[in-house]
């Protein structure tokens, strides 16, 4: 699904150069649920931003869903973000002036989808996150956890191959965080690959694979085999 080889990313300001990622290599398989953790400033968000084609990298190669995406035009990147990737942000990033329906509609409109097809997808996505009855509400009328569920609905409505989530529970209390995690697991079970950046070891443990980033380097990426035993373990222990 995702294959990064020797990626480096340097942020340059007038005074300093920050090597946010250096020789960063990572492979994520189809259908995996990967949790990424690491100290603050280690490069987690940078990795996610590059994985999500929100920013360019300096050197290395990146293949997404079997396609080299290193040298795409800006429009091409927009298109891949729109069709293949679903984003979940720490700050929810809902559009405050649009109701829930229209918020989930945003990426679908950029895909130029027919109106009835969009309606169907929006309704089923909001249904999945349990907010179908509040379609006409504004984000400000919802709790943080509910807002994040809308953001998840928005991320999955376009049926992406990959979901990237940057600390989606960072602004939520632990109960809501667990609900969000339940939802992500459910989505992963339906076949969507998920990469989740989180500080929370409890949540990270629930992923199939844990990746540790320190100083822009992947230092701990258990082999693929490990994920199978982890999945088995989760199926046995977590009641959901």
């Amino acid at each position: 699904m995702l294959r990064m080889q020797d990626i480096s990313k340097i942020y340059r300001t007038d005074l300093i150069e920050t090597h946010a990622l250096r020789d960063f290599s990572l492979r994520v398989g189809q259908g995996e649920f990967v949790a990424v953790s690491g100290p603050s400033g280690s490069g987690k968000t940078t990795f996610l931003t590059i994985a999500g084609l929100l920013e360019n990298f300096d050197t290395g190669t990146y293949e997404l869903d079997g396609r080299d995406v290193s040298r795409l035009t800006d429009d091409g990147r927009s298109r891949i973000r729109n069709e293949k990737i679903g984003f979940i942000f720490q700050g929810f990033n809902l559009i405050p002036d649009l109701d829930l329906f229209d918020n989930v509609d945003v990426p679908l409109r950029y895909r130029r989808m027919k109106a009835d097809e969009r309606r169907k997808r929006i309704e089923s996505a909001l249904d999945l996150v349990g907010l179908a009855s509040r379609m006409k509400h504004l984000p400000s009328q919802l709790s943080g956890g509910q807002q994040q569920r809308v953001a998840i609905a928005r991320a999955i409505a376009g049926d992406p191959a990959l979901i990237l989530a940057d600390e989606p529970t960072g602004n939520l209390d632990s109960l809501m965080a667990r609900q969000i995690m339940d939802l992500l697991e459910k989505i992963n079970d339906m076949g969507t690959t998920i990469v989740l950046v989180t500080h929370d070891p409890e949540l990270a443990r629930r992923a199939q694979r844990n990746i540790h980033i320190v100083d822009g380097l992947v230092i701990d990426s258990p082999p693929y085999e490990a994920r199978e035993s982890q999945r088995a373990a989760r199926a046995g222990t977590s009641p959901d």
């Binding site: 973000r81 984003f87 990033n93 990426p107 950029y110």
Partner: peptide, 16 residues
């Protein structure tokens, strides 16, 4: 700004 960045992330092209 953030809304526009988010729209871009969700697939809006510059011309959109």
């Amino acid at each position: 700004t953030r809304q526009i960045g988010t729209r871009r992330a969700l697939g809006a092209r510059k011309r959109d």
